[in-house]
Amino acid sequence: MKHDWFLSQEAFDDLLDWLDQDREQAGVKYEEIRRRLIKIFTGRACVEAEDLADETINRVTSRLSEIKKGFTGDRARYFFGVANKVYMEYMRRKQPQPPPPSTTDSYQVELEYRCLEHCIESLSEENRYLLLKYYGAEGRSKVDQRKQLAEELGVAPNALRIRAYRIRLGLQECVEKCTERSEA
């Protein structure tokens, strides 16, 4: 491994070109690969999942001129092989301790709650309805309520799960931004 190698703009541009000729699509693919690498390292209980994902991408980028010559097939798959090597090296190193569980600060919790209320209010009426109905269902009636909701919205149950998840993800991002703004 080239330990003193840094990702230059030129090298990064080469990587994007390799991922896709269309620059916008290449950017999307890069983000997806990074996000998925993080998920893989997290799945292997690596505390520094983001750093390891970046290291994997850097290694691929640093060898790109060689890879380009012989590699054919799904480019994302190539990252998987490199990620395995990065992981093995990580296991040999002293592993960092996981972060301690976040403490409960009642002021912080209240601030986040107010932000959540604000973010939910700013959802479209349809998304708010879906969120409340989908996640509000609990206990034995949960499955039936979700099935009923899917029928009501005219979508398959699995499509509803994914839609609810996306709304929730957007909500979490909204709350994080709102909390940061309020603390600043």
Binding site: I38, T42, A45, C46, V47, A49, P98, P99, P101, S102, V109, E112, Y113, L116, E117, I120, L132, Y135, G136, R168, L171, Q172, V175, E176
Partner: peptide, 19 residues
């Protein structure tokens, strides 16, 4: 084990409280 998932758990609790 990761801070990211701890954040998700924290948000999940917040959402549950709201619901």
């Amino acid at each position: 084990i990761t801070a990211e998932r701890q954040k998700k758990l924290r948000f999940g609790r917040l959402l549950r409280r709201y619901l």
